[in-house]
Amino acid sequence: MVWEPSLAIRDLDFEAAVELGPRALLRLGGNADSAICDPLAALLTGLHARLRAAGTRDVVVDIRTLEFMTASCFNTLVAWLALITELPPDERYRVQFESNIAIPWQRRSLQTLACFATDLVTVET
């Protein structure tokens, strides 16, 4: 694993970190309020660029400690998925969400998100 300090957000009560590798890991934790939207969108765009450059095929998004996420912030995840679906089929990578069943919003949101790309998105609890 290679630590990528530029692919990280540290806010008062939100944290995002990336570990690149054959199976990349994106950890999101805390409260993602609307102030996080733009930095998160920038991080995801950057992550997408790195994953493409490295030819990575699998990404795990660990949101088990993500207590809250605004709709506008969640939209950045949808936009990220749209980026992936627009790639040529052989360049797409799969996204596996690791969620926390004890956090109610995650269940419905992730189920709905998976409807956008059932062939690319899986949700684990």
């Binding site: 809250f68 949808v78 949101s109």
Partner: peptide, 17 residues
């Protein structure tokens, strides 16, 4: 609430797709 807001937003995005 946030769940409702999210559903509406995702409907916009879903339609765009």
């Amino acid at each position: 609430d946030e769940d409702f807001d999210l559903a509406v937003n995702m409907a916009f995005r879903f339609m765009a797709m």
